[in-house]
């Protein structure tokens, strides 16, 4: 593992650039009307950083690293729940209209 650290980095870099390109095309396809929910969702998923926080908080016992990890878990959880819920609220408002207009039609 240690010997291949440059290899790991290059793989990471490959993934990074490909993901940027996917992000570019996917985000341009988002309709402008939904740009606020887009921010809500991206905010929620960027909190996937919780993965790192859980690893830090994982070991038993208490040390500095674990406390930092737990704080990270709390902060990221606020975002995950908050981000997805507020997006859900926004999107359900857009949903309501669809139903209503369909009923009218």
């Amino acid at each position: 593992m240690e010997a291949h650290s440059s290899e790991v980095f290059v793989i990471g870099l490959t993934v990074f650039f490909l993901a940027c390109i996917i992000g570019y095309y996917v985000v341009w396809s988002v309709t402008p009307a939904l740009h606020s929910p887009l921010m809500g969702v991206t905010n929620a998923i960027s909190s996937v950083i919780i993965v790192g926080a859980i690893l830090a908080a994982g070991p038993q016992g208490f040390d500095t690293s674990k406390i930092f990890g737990l704080i990270g878990v709390v902060l990221a959880s606020v975002n995950i729940f908050g981000g997805f819920l507020v997006t859900y609220r926004m999107l359900s408002m857009f949903k309501k209209k669809t139903k209503k207009t369909k009923e009218k039609e």
Binding site: V8, F9, I11, G12, V15, F16, F17, A19, C20, I22, G23, Y24, V26, V27, L38, M39, T42, N43, I45, S46, V48, I49, V51, G52, L55
Partner: peptide
Amino acid sequence: TLSNNLLIITGALVGAS
């Protein structure tokens, strides 16, 4: 830092967005 592809991909998506 963590050599974690999930974080790299998600970060790049959010960054691009």
